[in-house]
Simulated scan of single mutants.
Amino acid sequence: MESWITIKHLETIEISDIREHIAPLIRPKKEDELARRFDYLVYSIDLGLLQSKSIQSPVNIVVQTAEKLSAKYSIPQVEKKKEIIEKVQTNEFWDKVTIIELDTVREALRGLLQYLDRQVRPIYYTNFTDSITDGTPGEPLYGGNDLKNYRKKVEFYLKEHSDKLSVYKLKNNKKLTETDLRELERILWTELGSKEDYIKEYGETPIGRLVRKIVGVDRAAVNEAFSCFMSEERLNINQMRFVNLIVDYIVANGNIEDNKVLMGEPFKSVGSITTLFKDDMSTAKQIMEIVNQIKRNSEEIA
């Protein structure tokens, strides 16, 4: 009872003294402001994913932050998180990102922002009213001008519109029609930029091949192309591993642009095609014909 009375007494009579003389001695934990802002940034992406809203703007900031951190690998703490920093800068990561993966990124990078160079920016005062034009209620907003350059515009558009017929066909190993090609030219040469922009970034790369390189190929479509080898017991273990590596590469990169790729890793570890198929070169030729046909499907008109 005495203890209770003492506590009650302190709460009612001396609380002002405690606040004035004792409380200042206990300093609140000082949270890194940059880390807190990064938390908020990632949480805004989480919310956008959950509500199916556009996350373009905060994603761009995270990517730009990762790009800046990649120049700081000389700092051990930053170098330790290199894998995550590099992964965040890829389209593949954002194409299938989850809330859990985002929180891993948040925890990994929030403490590294202190190593970035601080920029002193001039203050500009504006007085204008924001407005949204051509917006459709319930649909994410796509602001092409928010992207830094033509290449990022193209990559973002194609990733976000993989269900568009022409893009869908290329992703599923189907040839384009003349109409499909004209539509892609309109988008890439008029809507997102100019033909000069395209040539500056991609040279003379055919549009179909470029789209395929960015969006890749659906695994089911590639497996179907190689189904004659998957369904028949005509390959040994190493030969099957080699074909599976080809499938993986095409799924990720769209095509095998140069057969010299097959001489490097990860193919090299399994063995060269001439060594693996030295007793059955006709099968090797069939495999390469399928590889070339998949490539032609991204360039030829149906």
Rank of each mutant, 00 (worst) to 15 (best):
N253M: 11
V247G: 07
K81C: 04
M263H: 13
K175F: 05
Y157W: 06
S54D: 08
N259P: 15
I84N: 03
P24C: 05
T104N: 15
S54W: 06
Y157V: 02
D163C: 13
D95N: 10
D258N: 09
S269Q: 06
S16V: 09
S3K: 14
N149V: 02
D46C: 12
I294E: 03
E86L: 12
V222C: 03
F242C: 00
K153T: 01
T65S: 07
L49T: 00
E2K: 12
L192S: 00
C228I: 13
A225V: 05
L181M: 13
Y198I: 01
K213V: 12
W189N: 13
H9L: 14
R209F: 14
Q114R: 12
V154D: 02
R182S: 12
V261Y: 04
E196N: 09
K260N: 10
S282R: 11
Q114M: 09
S54L: 07
E160A: 11
R27F: 03
T6D: 14
G144I: 05
E160R: 10
K87A: 05
V120N: 14
A284E: 08
K171H: 04
T274C: 15
P24D: 03
F128M: 14
V222R: 01
E2F: 15
T6N: 13
L116Y: 00
F226S: 02
G135V: 13
Y142M: 11
K260P: 05
V63W: 10
T129Q: 09
D39M: 12
L25I: 07
I75Q: 04
V120W: 09
I123Y: 12
L165I: 08
I214Q: 05
P24V: 05
P28Q: 08
N255G: 13
L188W: 07
Y198G: 09
L109C: 01
S194P: 11
F277Y: 03
F226V: 02
E92Q: 14
V291D: 02
C228F: 15
N236R: 05
I301T: 06
N149A: 02
Y202F: 10
A225S: 08
L41F: 09
L141P: 12
K80G: 08
R182Y: 11
S194W: 02
S298N: 08
I187P: 03
N259V: 15
K195G: 06
S282M: 15
K159A: 12
M288R: 07
L102N: 04
Y73M: 10
F38I: 00
S54Y: 03
G264A: 08
L170I: 03
N149D: 08
D134W: 12
N236I: 04
D197E: 04
T104V: 13
R296Q: 11
A252Q: 09
N292W: 13
L116A: 01
K164E: 11
I273E: 06
A220I: 04
E155N: 10
K87W: 11
Y150E: 00
S16Q: 15
I75W: 08
L41H: 00
P266V: 01
